[in-house]
Nucleic acid binder design. Structure first.
Length: 475
DNA sequence: TGAAATGTTGGGGCG
DNA sequence: ACGCCCCAACATTTC
């Protein structure tokens, strides 16, 4: 009797799941398991109340249901992954252990040990379920990793992406899970005890089927105009697939092939499709960078920034709170921060603007912003989040130059001209004119809204001054 | 996947 | 007609 443990992590789907596919193909029975790793992985601390935990809960619920329909029970365990898997292997006599890889340093270290330890008692195999191709697939001619996106993405496409997405496996699955102990999903504690999550989740449909619905909706209605419309936060022009990608309710390979199939039928969508796929490429780049430069989870990739004179915590703490709560007095920034708080998501253009404001105008270390995003985003993803923040701060790969400072008023006038996005998230400004809504301090209207917390011109110059201190340091 | 400062050009008002 | 100035509008440079 061959029995495979299928360890689900950030691949909470049945279709195009290489580990599950291999288990079903090669073994007579499967035991699907999810482990709450209290030792911490992917930057989330145990018991920490976070938006992405809520999303995880619902994704697991969906996966549990889908597996039940196929005839097997998803087992939930908690603790050190090695111990949990050793125990499960002993309980079941499993002959195989399959999973899809992860790429964060803590996860890699954990998986490496497990592979070493359990290879004595069963066959352990890992697969690529999260990326179009592996981080080690392309390097520069000199053998070092790319640091520039366009060159990276060009080479990666040139090297090609292996294989078509795997189909959803046929039912029924055979498993021996009836007599195994399992926590309940609720036991994992991914839902907050004060149920603030309910409002947030009205903005989302979670699970593998919902992910494909979202992709189909995006492709049929939005991808054609993606390049032109994606920068306008009031428009529903983006895919909003990021949380699905993070938890693996859809795979990038599925997105690539579905999008290319659409392109074949609709050649005029080429510009939009290319632009959209390059965003998938940025996600690949983020994982690539995290794999090759694991220290960047906390330290700047550009070593000059180790000496950057950020403000000190006791000095910036009050400002940080205003930023987090959407009380900066700059409407576009506050709208973004409140969208984040209420929905667990923020439009990407606005993410760049609020991040630039934190790191440059407020001179608060990018790690503070990264941490806040990690707690509040449903799509919180270590690789993408680290890359994004280092990019904005100017210390990352292919980063925005430090002197590139977004002006939140100009960005607002450019990308939310009619104030539609601002009015939606800042109802107190709803009656401002199209002209003054971007800078309420120029209006005589009396509203309950904070005054701007900093002078944009002066704080920009202050940031440039501080950059002068480090810019000529040897790298 | 900026913004601000600085430079250039050319049309029009005007003496 | 001409030179001069002003200043959009656009281009280039700098941060």
């Amino acid at each position: 009797m061959s029995i495979a443990i299928v360890w689900f992590r950030q691949d909470l789907r049945l279709s195009d799941n290489p580990a599950l596919h291999a288990a079903l193909e090669r073994c007579e029975q499967i035991i699907p398991v999810f482990i709450d790793e209290t030792s911490g992985n992917s930057g989330l601390l145990p018991g920490e109340s976070s938006a992405s935990h809520v999303w995880l809960h619902h994704s697991l619920h969906s996966l549990q249901q889908r597996l039940l329909e196929k005839g097997v029970t998803l087992i939930f365990r908690r603790g050190d992954a090695l111990q949990c898997l050793q125990q499960l292997q002993q309980e079941t006599g499993a002959t195989h252990l399959f999973w899809n890889r992860r790429y964060d340093p803590v996860g890699i270290a954990c998986d490496t040990v497990i592979k070493q330890q359990l290879s004595d008692v069963c066959e352990v195999r890992s697969f690529n379920g999260s990326l179009l191709s592996e981080p080690w697939a392309v390097l520069k001619k000199d053998g070092t990793p790319y640091r520039v996106f366009t060159a990276f993405w060009k080479m990666k496409r040139q090297a090609g992406f292996p294989g078509l997405p795997l189909p959803e496996p046929a039912s029924p699955f055979r498993g021996t899970t009836q007599n195994l102990t399992s926590l309940s999903l609720d036991d994992l504690g991914y839902l907050p005890s004060i149920r603030w999550d309910k409002g947030m989740m009205t903005h989302w449909n979670v699970g593998e089927l919902a992910a494909h619905d979202a992709l189909e909706n995006f492709i049929s209605a939005q991808v054609q105009g993606y390049k032109e419309k994606r920068d306008y936060p009031a428009l529903p022009a983006t895919s909003r697939l990021s949380p699905h990608l993070h938890f693996g309710t859809i795979s990038p390979r599925q997105i690539l092939h579905r999008t290319e199939a659409f392109l074949a039928e609709n050649p005029s969508a080429e510009t939009g499709v290319r632009c959209f796929l390059s965003e998938v490429g940025w996600r690949e780049f983020a994982y690539y960078l995290l794999y090759h430069f694991p220290a960047t989870t906390t330290l700047p990739l550009d070593k000059r920034f180790t000496a950057f004179p950020w403000r000190k915590q006791e000095e910036y703490q009050a400002d940080l709170l205003r930023w987090q709560r959407g009380q900066t007095g700059f409407p576009l920034i506050d709208a973004g921060m409140r969208q984040l708080w209420q929905t667990g998501w923020m439009h990407n253009r606005v993410r760049m603007i609020v991040a630039s404001f934190l790191a440059k105008n407020l001179l608060i270390p990018w790690q503070e912003g990264e941490s806040w995003f990690r707690d509040t985003l449903v799509d919180a993803d270590l690789a993408s989040n680290i890359m994004g923040w280092q990019w904005v701060a100017g210390c990352g790969a292919d980063a925005a130059p430090y002197f590139r400072v977004f002006n939140p008023v100009l960005q607002s006038e450019k990308f939310d001209k009619s104030g539609e996005y601002i009015r939606h998230w800042l109802p107190e400004l709803r009656n401002m004119t199209d002209k003054t809504i971007h800078q309420p301090w120029t209006s005589t209207a009396k509203v309950n809204y904070p005054t701007a917390m900093t002078d944009l011109k002066a704080s920009r110059l202050r940031a440039l001054d501080r950059f002068d201190v480090i810019k000529n340091d040897s790298v």
